[in-house]
Design a protein around this nucleic acid. Structure first.
Lengths: 224, 224
DNA sequence: TCACTAGAATCGGTATACGACTTGACGCTT
DNA sequence: AAGCGTCAAGTCGTATACCGATTCTAGTGA
C-alpha cells in the first residue's frame, strides 16, 4: 500500500523540507492562505501542516501570524545538550541487539562517507549510519525523539552544506563507534557516541563563528 | 490579557485532562463527531484537539478511527529512561541560577508535601517543586520536553492516585535535593535527581505489579 | 508636517457541506 | 450451513463560507 498520501501530509513534508533546507529563511511569514494557494489546496491542509511544524518547533504560531522559527547559537547548544543526553542511552541499550547484518551495512556506510560523493550524500549516509544502531532496540518514543532532534540540528548543518572542511575526526569516530558496537562494548559505544556528538557540535559552532554567520546568541522570540 | 481562549484550546485541554486522569480509558474510541457534539462545537476544533493529543502521544490516530493510547510497562520504562537522561542535565545547569526566592518556595512546597493534604495536592506540589529548579535556566526546549515527559508519566501515576503508601523515601530525597541546591552543589543535585527518578519509577512499578494492574508488558499497538 | 482616526484588506478560527473510504451486517449463492 | 458479495451507516479529509479580530493604509485635521 503506497497509502495515497493525504494533501496535508504532502504539504507538511514539503514545507518541512523547505524550512530545513533554508529555502524558507528564519523570520519568513507563513500565512495559511498563501500556502494554500501555492500548493493549490484549501486552507485546511495548510493549517494542519503549520500546526504539525509548530509542534516540531520549526515554526512559531503567533496569534495573528506564523513565522519560520529563528536560529540561534543558544538553541543549537540546547539541541546538542539534549542529543548528548539521550543518544548515548539509546546506544547503550541497542548495542547488545545489533546483528551482523546491521554491522555490515554500517561498515559500508562508513566507506560511503569516507569517499564522500557530495555533502548531501554524506549527511544522508551519516544519518542512516546512526539509525542502524537505534532501529535494533525497542524504544519507539526514544527513537522518534532522537530522529526529531537530529532533524532540528540538521537545519544548522544545512547552513554550510557543501563546504565541509576537515571531517577526518568524524570518520575516525565512526570507525571507533563501529568497532565498539562490533565488540559488544555497550558502555564504550555510548561514551564514543557522546564524544562524537560533542565533536560535531563544536565543529558546527566553529564553522558558524568563522564564517561570521552571525546568529543571535540568545534564543529567538520566545515571547509567545 | 486573559486571551479569550479558543474553542480548540479548551477542548484540547479538557480532553488531555480526561485522558491523563484515566477518565477516558486506554482503547476508548474517539470520533471527531462525538467529541464535537459533546463540547457543542464543530468538528474542526475536535479535529485539532485530536491532532495535538496525537503529537503528544496520548492518542493514536488510525485511518478510520482514533483511540486513547494504551499504557504498558515498556512505555513507562522508556519514559523514565528519558527523564533520567534529561532532568539531571537540566538540574546541573539550573543550580547555579536558583535564587533565594525559589529556594524558599521549594522549602515550603516540601512542607506541603509532607503534610500531604490529598494525593492530588501532593502531585501538584511535587510538580511545582521540580519546576522551580528548571524555570531558572534558559533552556526552553529542554524545559518543554521535561514537562511533557512528566505529564506522560503522570498518566501512570493517576492509576493509583489516592492510594499512596510509603512515600518517606521521596520526602527524604526532596530534602536532599533541596540541600544540594541550596549549597550550590550542581553535580550532587543532578545525581540526586536521577536517583529520585529511579526511585519513583521503581515505586510506581512495584505498585502496579502488586495491585495486579496488568498492563501489557510490551509496547501497545505500534503498528501504525 | 505630523499625529490620529476611520476604513479597507487580510488573517485566523469556526461552521457547514460534500465526497471518498472504511467497516460491519445482512442476504444471497453455493 | 458456510462463505462471499453487496449495501448502508459512519468516519475522516477537504472545500467553501462566515465571522471577529488585527493590521496596514490613506486621509483628514491640527
Amino acid at each position: 500500500m503506497a497509502a495515497a498520501e493525504s494533501a496535508a501530509g504532502r504539504v507538511t513534508r514539503d514545507l518541512r523540507r523547505r524550512v530545513l533546507s533554508g529555502e524558507l529563511k528564519p523570520g519568513t511569514v507563513l500565512s495559511q492562505s498563501r500556502i494554500a494557494a501555492e500548493y493549490d489546496v484549501s486552507r485546511m491542509p495548510a493549517r494542519d501542516a503549520l500546526q504539525v511544524l509548530a509542534n516540531e518547533g520549526l515554526v512559531d504560531l503567533g496569534p495573528a501570524t506564523s513565522v519560520v522559527r529563528e536560529l540561534s547559537i543558544a538553541e543549537l547548544q540546547e539541541l546538542y545538550e539534549l542529543r548528548e543526553a539521550i543518544e548515548p542511552v539509546l546506544t547503550r541499550l541497542a548495542v547488545p541487539n545489533v546483528g551482523r547484518a546491521q554491522i555490515a551495512q554500517m561498515t559500508s556506510l562508513v566507506d560511503v562517507m569516507e569517499t564522500a560523493p557530495s555533502a548531501a550524500d554524506w549527511m544522508d549516509a551519516n544519518a542512516r549510519f546512526h539509525e542502524h544502531v537505534y532501529t535494533s532496540v525497542d524504544r519507539p518514543r526514544m527513537i522518534e525523539l532522537t530522529e526529531h532532534l537530529r532533524r532540528l540540528t540538521d537545519r544548522y548543518l544545512y547552513l554550510h552544506v557543501g563546504v565541509f572542511g576537515d571531517v577526518d575526526h568524524l570518520h575516525d569516530e565512526h570507525r571507533q563507534i563501529l568497532a565498539a558496537v562490533r565488540a559488544g562494548d555497550a558502555a564504550g559505544a555510548a561514551e564514543l557516541t557522546r564524544i562524537h556528538l560533542a565533536t560535531s557540535h563544536e565543529f558546527i559552532l566553529r564553522y558558524l563563528l568563522e564564517h561570521a554567520l552571525l546568529l543571535p546568541l540568545a534564543h529567538g522570540s520566545e515571547t509567545r
